[in-house]
Write a protein that binds this DNA or RNA. Structure first.
Lengths: 152, 152
DNA sequence: TATTGTTATACTCTATAACTATA
DNA sequence: TATAGTTATAGAGTATAACAATA
């Protein structure tokens, strides 16, 4: 933490995964909003749209589980996306409790228009690291984050 | 993301630092609350107490800067800690705008009683990784997170 | 004028519990 | 009974703007 606020001893936290994850995420998110803030999308909502583009007809609960978002919260986000005309719902015949989600044509256009900027930003969001270090970090985070869904 | 929800294609996010950081932090925090929830401390508040133990008399704004917490939010957190009797304020002679923070004896006892459990938990919070991988991850996050304070 | 801290406010994210409708 | 989704609500966390006191 040598580059931190001078004169403040944070050495006790240098081995704390939780502390370093919070600081790192905050830094990345701050850059995200500074660069992509005017694009009319939050990281969370865009993640959902992108996941639906790659998984058309995905059920709401399965999506919530994959992204580690509680179903109660997913319901609210999806409602907002439906209200904006970006996502459509469909109740399948074989299980009328479930809801299948799809991008509307507007949603697909919305994603297509922004994903370039989104991923370009993401690629450039860690100038502190070399390309090799970035790849190593991504690999370790993938291993750490491997999801197993909601714990009720 | 092979261990994720089966049948959901999240490959588009496997190179997104922001996405993986969010998932990782969420996992680590969930474990934190599951294990240490009854200990009467949130990660944020405990971080502040620990930082004050290692940096007695630290000024509020400097602390906020070091921990990447906005001053407006730090004011609220500090007030709560003062109300709980864990932190004391002192206005220095040479700059009567500033506030120096210290742990009270109660605050010091509070930290001493909990830091063992806190760091023990942190050490065990990433069973997905080998010791070597964990060290590598910590090093990369340190490099990425090297703070530079609030951007006004 | 600039800085330190405070208040007020709002928005996002997260979590739980109680509800409905279907199975 | 159990599951899928919804609603209501509450709590952190974070952001900005306006303000008072001090420098």
């Amino acid at each position: 933490m040598s580059g931190a606020a001078p004169g403040v001893d944070l050495s006790r936290f240098e081995s704390s995964l939780g502390f370093l994850l919070r600081l790192s995420q905050q830094k990345i998110f701050a850059r995200f909003f500074a660069t992509l803030g005017p694009l009319d999308l939050t990281p969370g909502a865009f993640t959902i749209l992108l996941a639906l583009r790659d998984n058309p007809g995905l059920r709401q609960g399965v999506l919530a589980n994959a992204l580690m978002i509680k179903r109660a919260n997913m319901a609210k986000i999806v409602r907002a996306l439906v209200d904006r005309g970006l996502v459509s719902r469909h109740v399948p015949e074989d299980d009328r409790r479930a809801i299948e989600l799809n991008l509307t044509p507007e949603g697909a256009a919305f994603v297509a228009a922004r994903e370039g900027a989104f991923f370009a930003h993401d690629d450039e969001s860690s100038p502190e690291l070399t390309d090799n270090e970035r790849e190593t970090l991504l690999g370790l985070l993938r291993k750490l984050a491997g999801t197993q869904g909601e714990t009720p």
